[in-house]
Design a protein around this nucleic acid. Structure first.
Lengths: 222, 222
DNA sequence: AAAATAGTGTCTCTCAGACAATATAAG
DNA sequence: CTTATATTGTCTGAGAGACACTATTTT
């Protein structure tokens, strides 16, 4: 089994970039600039540049910056899709990532991304529909046990906003009382002292919070 | 961004093959047959063969069969390790899988695998120690919420054996009464009717069970 | 009967969901 | 004072852990 060399597959990273828009999860797509599927909206992605990227995360960061104008946002590895038929060009490997970004940050980036509701994303090229499905499942599954959903919010947020995010991500209504109790028990947030704010529709100003840690995973279900 | 072609990384699959031996989790290794690290015990793995493997799972199945004499065992994708420095030869991608096999099946395979306790695996080449660590965490994490640990047992097993597996995987003692209650509530097993068996040390014969489904994931913690 | 494992019953505590009640500010 | 949201409290039921108890077989 002295395997020396073999024809190598294409290696890319693809990013399921999710954000919240009008209370719904949206996926950010970019029209492809090259064949195949030139002009068709697809996941943000690109080749791994072996001369330039020290690892897959570096490739993701580079591509997010170059193609979406984003840096410093949350992303984590999702799953790798690798087969002979997922790309018409050749045997291909896509190391898929999912990323979350607050809408405000996306707006500031000033890049013309196409946002589509994640549950009505329409036709997508390659196996991108499968990748999006995997991302939704991951977000839904892990969301209930982590502060990942909070990465869809700005740094500072209200308890109600946080609850709304969890409800959207998990696709179910949550009891307000139980939600607050759990968040407090888990000790995930710190108050932004002195800063009160009125949300659009609120009468009474509300306490503002921020995450103590960028990412917390816990055992209890939110 | 009309990216046409780029130098391609090496693409391999690596398999963390775990089994149970003397009540402890062991990892199955093979001495490498080629440089680098020729002769050193390493994860079972190999190049993706683009002419032969239709996808990454096919590569895993082929390699498990060729190098470990195993087929039909449980495996699932773990995580992908991709960086410039994980392999001295070149920028390299390893799509890592973890696999579980009952000791009996491993014995029948008749291949000289080196078994080491997973928590004392010693030095491993490349980043294989990281991959093993990821596999342990996955097994531990997902184990409590699925029937994955049962894939370390033969098809037919006793309730005590099942409990012992979960205890090993999760690294803690479980209450017998609570364990049985949960397993029954979750409706995961079916009795193998009429078949009673005496385990080695048992006095009283015990009911035998098999899994209703090859893999069940649930919300409750075992 | 003793030993050893198989299997059941019960108590308590934590936590989740449901729902009610109170608090605070704007208009 | 009304309205709308923020925030707290209480009740109930499910499930987890602890532990004691019963059952069945071999020696």
């Amino acid at each position: 089994m002295a395997e020396t060399e073999f024809p190598r597959p294409i290696v890319t990273v693809d990013i399921v970039l999710l954000t919240l828009r009008e209370e719904r999860l949206h996926i950010a797509l970019l029209p492809r600039t090259a064949e195949p599927f030139a002009g068709v909206a697809a996941l943000i992605g690109g080749y791994v540049h072996v001369e330039e990227d020290s690892d897959a995360e570096a490739a993701v960061a580079r591509i997010l910056k170059a193609k979406a104008g984003l840096s410093g946002i949350f992303f984590e590895q999702l799953q790798t899709f690798a087969s002979v038929d997922r790309d018409p060009r050749d045997w291909s490997v896509s190391i898929a990532y999912f990323a979350l970004v607050p809408q405000e940050v996306l707006d500031e980036a000033g890049v013309a991304l196409e946002l589509r509701p994640v549950d009505a994303a329409g036709e997508l090229p390659f196996d991108h529909a499968d990748i999006v499905r995997a991302a939704r499942e991951r977000l839904r599954g892990k969301g209930a046990y982590s502060t990942i959903p909070a990465r869809l919010l700005p740094d500072i947020f209200t308890m109600s906003e946080l609850q709304a995010i969890y409800e959207t991500v998990m696709g179910e209504r949550l009891d307000q009382s139980a939600f607050r109790r759990k968040i407090n028990d888990l000790n995930l947030l710190e108050e932004v002292e002195g800063e009160k704010r009125q949300t659009e529709r609120a009468r009474r100003p509300t306490t503002l919070y921020r995450l103590k840690a960028p990412l917390a995973v816990f055992d209890r279900r939110i």
